Simulated assay, not measured.
Amino acid sequence: MAKNLNIIVADDHPMLLKGLTEELITNGYNVISTAENGAIALELITKLNPDIALLDIEMPLLDGFEVIKKCEGKGLKTKFIILTTHKGSRFVYKAKTLNISGYLLKDEPFIEIQNCINAIKNGNTYFSTTFNTVFETEISPELEKMKRLSPSERTIVRLIAQGNSSKDISESLYISLRTVQKHRTNILNKLDLESNLESLSVWANNHKDIILSL
């Protein structure tokens, strides 16, 4: 049964941590330890190698994503569930690129955590409906747009996402400022963005995690 799995819970809000832990235990789950920050969570996961780690995203010292990244390559059996208030595309995309088994919102009923744990026990993943909606409606369309860009244009978009100006890009790529501006115009057209000075910079900043991962 899924309730025989060893679970670690990490959240920097004491009341939330206590409430979730008690709810899990009351429902028969085996919570072997808890952590109030990411560093302790990482130490416990590495030491105890639990079946499941329930992690908040925003925690002191290390956030949930950083904990998961640092666990990679350690030969752990642990499956990760992100439990968060964040519904934004930046967080959803970042979670999608990590080896996680579940992404749940804190305002969802406890039954969703149970469904997620059961899915993991059966070798599946389980993501909040909101997670899937955000990915399908906000992230996938932007990924498709990025495919329209040439390698050179992707390089320029990546540099813009990193905060570089047209002058910076011109100097780092050893091309004229006019060439950079021409590329920017072509990129605006391919991405269906408004033809103004700031629209590409705003778009690149809003989709920074997607852009820098490609």
Rank of each mutant, 00 (worst) to 15 (best):
I139E: 00
V92R: 04
G64M: 04
I100N: 06
A161Q: 07
K69P: 02
K47F: 02
P60N: 04
G88P: 00
V92F: 04
I57A: 01
I81D: 09
D56Q: 06
V134A: 00
L55T: 09
T46S: 13
A95F: 07
Y103P: 07
E144A: 13
I113T: 12
I81H: 05
V134F: 01
F65L: 04
T155C: 11
A161F: 04
I40D: 14
P151T: 07
I139L: 01
P141Q: 04
L149P: 06
N99R: 12
T130Y: 00
L42D: 01
I111K: 12
A41N: 00
K94N: 13
A41Y: 03
N115D: 12
Y126P: 05
V67D: 01
C71I: 13
S140M: 11
F65I: 03
T97G: 07
L54D: 03
L83W: 14
E72N: 14
P141C: 04
L149H: 08
D63W: 06
T46Q: 03
D63P: 14
I52K: 02
I111L: 06
I45V: 15
G88S: 14
L143I: 15
F91M: 10
Y93N: 07
G75H: 08
T129S: 13
A53N: 08
F110C: 11
E142W: 03
R158Q: 12
L54Y: 05
N49A: 05
M59R: 05
I52V: 15
I160L: 12
N99L: 07
P151R: 07
T97D: 04
P141G: 06
I160W: 00
I120T: 07
N115L: 11
A119P: 11
P109L: 10
D107H: 03
N99V: 03
P141D: 07
D56F: 08
Q114G: 03
D107F: 02
D63H: 06
S128T: 08
I68R: 02
T85H: 03
F135S: 04
C71G: 05
S152Q: 13
I139W: 00
A95Q: 12
T155R: 13
P141A: 02
K79Q: 14
K87A: 10
K47R: 14
T130I: 13
K74Q: 15
G123Y: 01
A95W: 08
I40Q: 12
G73R: 03
L98C: 09
L105R: 00
G102Y: 01
F80V: 09
F80R: 06
V92P: 12
L42R: 06
L44F: 11
L98I: 13
L61V: 15
T78A: 08
F91A: 12
F65R: 01
G88R: 14
C71S: 08
I156D: 06
K69S: 11
S101Y: 12
T85I: 14
I82R: 05
E138Y: 01
P109N: 10
L62N: 01
I160Y: 01
P109Y: 05
Q114R: 02
T125C: 11
L48F: 09
N122P: 10
D56C: 05
S128M: 00
T133Y: 08
I57Q: 05
F135I: 10
E138A: 10
K147E: 15
